[in-house]
Design a protein around this nucleic acid. Structure first.
Lengths: 233, 233
DNA sequence: CAGTGGTCTAGACCACCCC
DNA sequence: GGGTGGTCTAGACCACTGC
């Protein structure tokens, strides 16, 4: 008996990728049409379509109606960053997670925040500062502002035991966000919270979150010295 | 005449997402089967399938054979980071890009690199150091090691005018990589190259690249003070 | 205008896995 | 065992766009 396996879209996808990596089809080259590939692989055009669509999503090929499918010239590498709860970051390192509320206050939005969240001046916001620990070592300092109008029930949450991130994730799931990563020097307050020298270089992540076009929260997360965020593609 | 538009997979996808956001289906809830949704929307099951598959890819819902489709309890946010050439980062800021080679030497791989790239000790590697400028201001310092065995032709490239990243992208496209982001303090050499004070906090990105399971290159990119990387989801 | 990818349909079979 | 999602097929129509 000969080997009998049906040609699935994954087979097509992998074979096309292999040919691109082996330079059978070089950068910028035109690939055969879906119809031709379907005939070659002995499958339906829809199968080829799905295979090529996945490669296009990855940035490996460029597709245009009428002109056809080409190998991308400058493959845009897309790294997928999984953004999880700080709790999960800590527990993934097999450390014992602990959370502590530092500060909680309802205030009118300061000018820079109104601008950041596109709010009217002096809109009431909730300002939260909190610490996250791993095995009782400082892990991350969280400085967060929440637009009370977007989640009125937040005034009833005291955040003494549950972090605002976990609370918000349950209250306003499936939001959209903008992220920003950078490095800063620890000021006196951060140095104390994170138990590090003043001016130590810290990895910092800022996130602005919207829910159905309404600004919900802005958070600045400063990690302990030496922290590294990882990803792959 | 009434509005006449056909129900496409995007309509289904958006409507399902809307119902999840509106809590019609809460976290952990079971959704109707594909068959039922197809009937409700008046379309084929394949259309519903594609819509739900996209939501599953985004981490919004979890799908399992037999048990059905559920709203994800802890939506894993996936941020897409577009990793491009340093040239592009600079030009996207409307700045004039300039590249300069600092150092180029063939050496046996030091121990830490052999370990990082899973190479035999003393494998010959090419060590490159280079600078990237935007409008003649220091933008990024690049410290790179290339596995000569993986790309033998690299010995003929002098990298005096074209950066190793652009060269490698043309030579070894469609590779896979691991990324790591963090913050470091500028040492004396970095401070000089980046025209910043010693101990200034710098954003740093490290990348290890493979091509068909073979290690190709390890690079450490240190950005000028204040640089921020952005993304969204 | 005509060729290419984008999508939909109706039906079918299969793999998985909870019960 | 049976219900669910996963995939494939063969055909069709449409939208975009280069010529």
């Amino acid at each position: 008996m000969t080997e009998r396996t049906k040609t699935g879209f994954q087979d097509v996808r992998d074979e096309v990728l292999k040919r691109i990596q082996d330079r059978v089809w070089g950068q910028g080259d035109l690939l055969p049409t879906e119809q031709e590939l379907a005939e070659e692989f002995g499958c339906a055009r829809a199968t080829v379509n799905r295979a090529l669509r996945e490669l296009a999503d990855r940035g490996i090929i460029d597709r245009k109606r009428k002109s056809g499918t080409r190998v991308a010239v400058l493959p845009v590498k897309q790294a997928k960053l999984e953004i999880t709860l700080t709790r999960q970051l800590v527990e993934d390192r097999n450390a014992n997670y602990r959370y502590a509320l530092v500060h909680r206050e309802e205030v009118p939005a300061p000018g820079w925040l109104s601008s950041q969240l596109q709010l009217a001046a002096d809109t009431p916001v909730l300002h939260i500062r909190a610490m996250h620990y791993g095995d009782n070592h400082p892990f991350q300092f969280e400085d967060r502002w929440i637009n009370i109008a977007a989640v009125p029930s937040v005034t009833a949450a005291d955040f003494s035991t549950v972090g605002p991130n976990e609370w918000l994730l349950a209250e306003v799931p499936f939001s959209t966000a903008e992220l920003s990563f950078g490095a800063i020097a620890a000021d006196a307050a951060l140095a104390e919270y994170l138990a590090c020298p003043i001016a130590a270089p810290l990895f910092q992540m800022e996130r602005t979150t919207w829910f159905q076009a309404q600004p919900v929260t802005f958070v600045r997360m400063s990690f302990h010295p030496g922290y590294q965020m990882r990803s792959r593609y």
